[in-house]
């Protein structure tokens, strides 16, 4: 057992004391896609005390190229990513307390999840949820690490409430959905590079070596051989509604929350019922089978295939409608089969 972290304890930045701190800390990883699986594996191997990972999706074949915790069997079984991730992470390090939630993170969920967390790793795929993370992190004074990648390009920034600018300061306007969708693909080294930055920053925070933090906005393009680091201290705005002196946390306003979302580059719409519920999947499978179409079920979700679409219904009531980007068409299907 004492051998397990010996190489990390030999590293001056961490040492025995740092390792003890890492082992007593809690990291929240939001998203279990490419970035989330990379960060979670590195942190669990590093011996973090507790790791919580949340994701709203399930494993598909196109994930296996870069989402390192998943195997073919997970795609075959359509396991929720959070469940498959937990299985693999527990096998890697049984000493770590691993919590996994199959859920779509919005304000309410995040405010609960962030409680007692030492650092949040952003492994999401959209700015709607990042802006919520931003405001919850400011409100509860938790550091978080923005990270994103597309193609061979990646970008990351560590946000320390009360010190650095927040994401709202940096963006001013939130990028539109279409702009951020990964329609140009992604190579896994770009993922790994962002993961390396995020995990290293997280380790510095966990061992409380704040002076070592990078403090710059960094981006790279591995294919074009570019690397940029910009000091953005001056971008912090006193007038910022998320981190300034008259803050109102606009992204936590329930009015601004969407019940439907088009999933990036996936030809899929998610519909979130206004009240989360626990669906009886067995009964649902029977009802759907009676309406024709092919029904499959595992303990976490039901998959229902009609002529042109596939509906995936989760236990918490959420439904993914594959085969459309059109919210009104998705709603029609939702009410036809599940209304």
């Amino acid at each position: 057992m004492s051998e397990r972290y010996s190489r990390q304890e030999l590293f001056t930045g961490i040492g025995l004391e740092g390792q003890r701190k890492i082992g007593s800390k809690h990291v929240l990883v939001i998203g279990a896609g490419a970035l989330g699986t990379g960060s979670a594996e590195a942190l669990v191997r590093a011996g973090v005390g507790k790791l919580t990972i949340v994701d709203r999706d399930y494993v598909e074949w196109s994930n296996l190229q870069r989402q390192q915790l998943y195997a073919e069997s997970d795609a075959l079984d359509r396991l929720p990513k959070a469940v498959a991730a937990k299985n693999r992470l527990s096998a890697i390090n049984s000493d770590v307390d691993i919590m996994a939630h199959v859920m779509d993170v919005s304000v309410e969920e995040l405010e609960q999840l962030v409680d007692d967390v030492d650092v949040v790793i952003d492994a999401t795929d959209n700015f709607d949820v990042r802006m919520i993370i931003n405001d919850v992190a400011q409100k509860q004074k938790v550091p978080w690490i923005y990270g994103a990648c597309v193609g061979s390009y990646g970008v990351t920034f560590t946000i320390l409430p009360g010190e650095t600018p927040c994401l709202a300061c940096l963006l001013e306007t939130v990028p539109m959905g279409g702009m951020t969708c990964d329609t140009v693909g992604i190579i896994s080294p770009a993922v790994q590079m962002v993961v390396s930055y995020q995990v290293t920053e997280a380790l510095k925070i966990l061992v409380e070596d704040y002076d070592a933090l990078r403090k710059k906005l960094v981006s790279f393009d591995l294919w074009k051989n570019e690397h940029v680091a910009i000091n953005v201290d001056k971008i912090k705005k006193e007038s910022c509604l998320s981190c300034g002196k008259d803050r109102t946390y606009p992204n936590l306003d329930r009015k601004n929350q969407t019940k439907t979302a088009v999933l990036c580059g996936r030809d899929t719409v998610q519909i979130r019922p206004s009240k989360l519920m626990e669906r009886d999947l067995e009964q649902l499978a029977t009802v759907l089978a009676a309406q024709g179409g092919k029904v499959d079920r595992n303990p976490y979700l039901v998959s229902f295939i009609t002529d042109d679409h596939r509906l995936v219904i989760f236990k918490d009531g959420r439904v993914l409608i594959h085969g459309t980007k059109d919210i009104s068409e998705a709603k029609t299907l939702y009410y036809r089969y599940l209304g």
């Binding site: 896609g33 970035l35 989330g36 999401t124 994103a148 597309v150 970008v155 702009m179 951020t180 990964d182």
Partner: peptide, 10 residues
């Protein structure tokens, strides 16, 4: 000139 642009994928 240094330019960083924000992307959303992950």
């Amino acid at each position: 000139i240094e330019i960083v642009h924000f992307v959303g994928g992950g």
